[in-house]
Nucleic acid binder design. Structure first.
Length: 563
RNA sequence: GCGCCAGUAGCUCAGCUGGAUAGAGCAACGGACUUCUAAUCCGUAGGUCGCAGGUUCGAGUCCUGCCUGGCGUACCA
């Protein structure tokens, strides 16, 4: 029996073999079985695995599902003795109850694959780019960016673990109006600091950090700067401020444990002439046309609600123009798949990007957008007042400083990004059972404690145990089998998480595994008087420790040895 | 008006490309520390899966219509 083959696959093969024999013996009308599923039933009394094969094959076989099931069961061959019993239930489910011993190889497989347990070849090395955060360098990252950062980073990790060649990228909007506005904001604050009367417009950036940057520029460059022409001063301020803020963003992300393979500058698309070239190219293809003094992209012809402007009457390009160039550039870099992580308030943008990709000759099937719903920041159940316009908001750095990186990341990933998220600062700080991050990390720390104890008592001589050689046949308690089954479910969770791009699947998996472990821990002692049982259980909990670590790593959360 | 997301226990949410008796956590109540970490566990209670139709062996899940909430519908980003 191949140890690295999933239980589902084994059972599927057994069923296919049975179908062939049943057909040869004339009990089935065809040896073809429709696409069957082997799944883990919700209820224990429905067995370890269940198959709907008899039901989905009913029309092909032109037989009643239960009759098909009977024929299959009569011809089952189980050379490795993994099936303890087999039942037909309900409308025609075939339920498999497996022997405890059939689960034991899973534990050894975890130890053997170690950091690689759960990794898949689903992606087949395809190149995927995940672009996320990409906040304008006009102010510090806030809570919403934090959720996007946690999700984007986790999605990248999960896809890489599922066998994709992943590149994480941050797109810097360092061009265009918002940067000029930033420069103007800083320049005005700088003038203000020099004692001049200023009129600070509403559409300038209101935050206190603008004053700080202005002060910093004055310290560095001296008060003479104030004598410069406004245009030049604004330009200097814009460059300095954008650079400064970007560095701050990079630091905050690093503190949050998020790193990027590439930081891609929007301005570079203009500097290299890429934006103009793309506009020209689409003009020649007649996809871009002129109307009312502006240039329009024919997005409506590719499924958008209406056409969109790429060059305004005043000759300036829109954000959309550089975005078209950027996404074309991504595909030119050879990515098979491009994933953007956006805030849900940008959803109206999806159709036009899809349209531009389809118009370019690529397929928007290769492009996915992860839309992240809003975060409601709470403190002790009450909403935290925030106003972006007034520049009053809680930054990502504030949150990481207050609740810690692990708690913040874990909570950001606790829900599907399709749903709004309540993030309670008090709850995130609490070191109690209400806080799921400790619930899971505690498993890791507890097992680490057991290992230390085992070393102290001399049950183990070394940390470097040959776990694969340990006899596990004494692991027959129901809680032990339940725990092994939870371990065996990890690769499936990774696959589901990767195929749906939903990291919270890993969160949910971790909560289930942690709960199963805590239940086992409270009912059974790992270190006992019986040496064989002790070693086998150490082997089991050691495997749990590794899977907890692997899963937490995917989410960017640490696995502490001690708490 | 049109579009996207959501509507599941008192609260916050899971529920895999349709499967059997819809699950956790919190809050409530009752128990478990001479023990490898009680940051834990066990038990009790809690439901018209927003509403109405449809598709089929079978619907929380898919389709249609409606209701409610959030967001979006720029020659802004």
């Amino acid at each position: 029996m191949r140890i690295d083959q999933s239980m589902e696959k084994k059972l599927k093969d057994i069923l296919l073999g049975a179908a062939r024999r049943a057909f040869e013996n004339g009990l089935l009308k065809s040896d073809v079985l429709s696409d069957m599923e082997i799944e883990v039933p919700r209820h224990d009394n429905h067995g370890d695995f269940s198959s709907n094969v008899a039901m989905v094959s009913a029309s092909v076989q032109k037989m009643a599902p239960r009759k098909i099931a009977e024929a299959l069961i009569a011809h089952l061959e189980d050379p490795h003795g993994i099936i303890e019993k087999c039942e037909i239930a309900g409308p025609g489910f075939i339920n498999f109850f497996l022997t405890p011993a059939s689960w034991h190889p899973v534990v050894q497989m975890v130890h053997e694959k170690d950091h690689g347990f759960g990794a898949l070849e689903m992606g087949q090395g395809k190149k995927v780019q995940v672009e996320f955060v990409s906040a304008n360098p006009t102010g510090p990252l806030h809570v919403g960016h934090g959720r996007g950062a946690a999700v984007g980073d986790a999605v990248g990790n999960i896809l890489a673990f599922a066998g994709y060649d992943v590149q994480k990228e941050y797109y810097i909007n360092d061009s265009g109006r918002q940067i000029r506005t930033l420069g103007r904001s800083v320049w005005l604050r700088l003038c203000e600091a020099l004692g001049r009367e200023i009129d600070f417009p509403d559409d300038c950036y209101q935050g206190e950090y603008i004053r700080e940057i202005a002060g910093e520029i004055l310290d560095h460059m001296g008060k003479d700067l104030g004598d410069k022409e406004e245009a030049q001063g604004v330009d200097i301020c814009a460059r300095y401020a954008a650079d400064k803020i970007l560095k701050g963003i990079q630091d905050d992300l690093a503190d949050f444990g998020v790193t990027f393979d590439q930081w891609f500058s929007e301005q570079s698309l203009y500097d290299s002439g890429r934006v103009q070239a793309v506009i020209e190219m689409f003009r020649e293809k007649d996809v871009i046309y002129e109307k009312d003094g502006a240039m329009w992209f024919k997005t409506e012809a590719f499924g958008d609600e209406k056409d969109r402007v790429v060059v305004r009457q005043n000759g300036l390009t829109t954000y959309f123009a550089s975005d078209i160039a950027y996404h074309m550039e991504k595909f030119d870099r050879g990515f098979d798949r491009v994933i953007d992580v956006w805030g849900a308030d940008h959803h109206g943008y999806i159709n036009r990007i899809n349209a531009s990709i389809d118009a370019s000759g690529r397929s928007s099937d290769q492009f996915d957008v992860i839309l992240i719903q809003l975060v409601n920041l709470l403190r002790g159940g009450a909403p935290v007042a925030m106003s972006t316009r007034a520049g009053e908001f809680v930054t990502l750095k504030d949150i990481v400083d207050e609740v810690g990186r692990d708690a913040a990341r874990f909570l950001f990933l606790s829900r599907s990004f399709d749903s709004g998220l309540d993030f309670d600062l008090e709850l995130a700080k609490q070191q109690t059972s209400e806080n799921p991050v400790y619930y899971v990390q505690y498993v890791h720390a507890r097992i680490a404690g057991i290992m230390i104890k085992a070393l102290e008592q001399g049950v183990l001589d070394t940390n470097d145990v040959a776990w694969q050689d340990i006899d596990l046949s004494c692991l027959t308690q129901v809680e032990e089998i339940k725990l092994i089954k939870a371990l065996a479910a990890f690769p499936g969770a990774v696959g589901k998480s990767a195929s749906t791009l939903h990291p919270h699947v890993i969160f949910t998996y971790l909560m289930t595994l942690a709960s199963t472990f805590h239940g086992y821990y409270n009912r059974h002692k790992v270190i006992t008087d019986d040496k064989n049982i002790t070693l086998a259980r150490l082997c089991l909990v050691g495997a749990v420790k590794k899977v907890i670590r692997n899963a937490l790593t995917l989410l960017g959360v640490s696995a502490p040895e001690r708490m």
